[in-house]
Design a protein around this nucleic acid. Structure first.
Length: 347
DNA sequence: AATTGGACCAACCGCGATATC
DNA sequence: AGATATCGCGGTTGGTCCAAT
């Protein structure tokens, strides 16, 4: 027969751990190690399931864990890796010394998802939301598109309002390089200018919301993928402070070729938003016309890369996951600038 | 001061893979 | 070889704290 049960199910305590329990577990593990989780609670005098002890140790008590705030560099790493491996929290956490998969997962769900949504980036696909809506528009009949657009505006209303109350957004339409008059909106996506500032009145806010609706409708109307010539990209200009803007800059500058021509926009060197607060988000993600990204981070020690430590050809967990060709890797995603060993998984 | 709602996070649950008998 | 426990992981839940009303 198989193994004996890990614990007596009916004599097990659940819920928050007390400091006394933590002490018992820590001191027992310090003396005897973590060889057999089934025996640990029994021998340590704890009325806990072995599984519960293991979780408590790995997620909280381990001495090598960090408990503070996530740094900008850690957040960047999480977002970059998430764009490649999806919700493989253990893989992502493996690249962040001192962080557990639970930490990373919680931080993603409570902070980073909202941050990306607020920037107009879909946290699941890592695509601009306008891109997703336009993609949907190409597959639906116009009446459905209209309803969907309204629904989408409802979905992202909170993020929109959050942004609107933080930064003023002006909409213009222009070609960045063609010389086409700025008011000619027939074949171009909106140019969004964010500037530091706040709304002066409700009227202005309402007006801007209307402009957003208008621009989305126009994006929806662009159902012909070739309607925007690839050599006439629209420009998304931002001169606001903002690590948030540099998120977008990093996304787009890193892999602009992934974005369909009809939705392509580019950021000029001055538009990267890295002239503002000096946040690591800006410094490492976009410096002028190109994004430095992870290679730069490597030199700064920003992204701990397991493959770097052991150059004996052994695969990192991330590489293994990628080489499985899992569905978490969407070739149509906008990907972050990752090291060669992470970016060329398919053999 | 009391209530409410959201943010945060620790812990639990369930499942698949692996190990053990 | 098959049955069953353990491990590791990702998803979800529930408790606590805090700010807004």
């Amino acid at each position: 027969m198989g193994r004996i049960p890990c614990c007596e199910k009916d004599n097990v305590k659940k819920g928050q751990w007390t400091p006394e329990e933590d002490n018992k577990l820590s001191s027992y593990i310090a003396q005897h190690g973590t060889r057999n989780w089934r025996l640990i609670p029994k021998n340590a005098g704890l009325q806990r399931c072995g599984k519960s002890c293991r979780l408590r140790w790995t997620n909280y008590l381990r001495p090598d864990l960090k408990h503070g705030e996530f740094s900008d560099s850690e957040e960047q790493t999480i977002v970059k890796l998430h764009s490649v491996v999806g919700n493989r929290w253990s893989l992502i956490a493996a690249q962040l010394p001192g962080r557990t998969d639970n930490d990373v997962k919680n931080h993603w769900n409570t902070k980073l998802k909202k941050k990306l949504s607020g920037m107009g980036i879909d946290p699941v696909t890592h695509k601009p939301i306008s891109h997703l809506m336009a993609e949907i528009a190409t597959t639906l009949a116009p009446p459905q598109v209209a309803h969907l657009t309204e629904a989408a505006l409802g979905c992202f209303k909170d993020e929109m309002l959050h942004l609107l109350t933080k930064k003023r957004i002006n909409f213009q339409f222009e070609h960045s390089s063609s010389g086409t008059p700025a008011h000619d909106v027939s074949n171009c996506l909106p140019l969004i200018t964010t500037t530091a500032g706040i709304y002066k009145s409700n009227n202005e806010e309402e007006d801007t919301i209307q402009k957003i609706k208008l621009s989305v409708s126009r994006a929806m109307a662009m159902q012909e993928p070739n309607s925007l010539p690839s050599n006439k990209p629209c420009t998304m200009v931002s001169n606001g402070e903002a690590s948030e803007t540099s998120y977008a800059a990093a996304y787009n500058n890193t892999h602009p070729f992934i974005v369909p021509a009809a939705l392509r926009y580019h950021l000029s060197p001055s538009s990267c938003g890295n002239d503002g607060d000096g946040s690591p988000w800006n410094r490492s993600m976009c410096t002028g016309s190109t994004c430095i990204g992870v290679d730069d981070q490597h030199q700064q020690g920003g992204l701990p890369c397991k493959g770097e430590d052991n150059n004996d050809g052994e695969e990192t967990g991330v590489e293994k996951a990628i080489q499985k060709g899992t569905d978490a890797i969407n070739a149509d995603c906008i990907l972050w600038d990752l090291p060669e060993d992470l970016m060329n998984p398919v053999v």
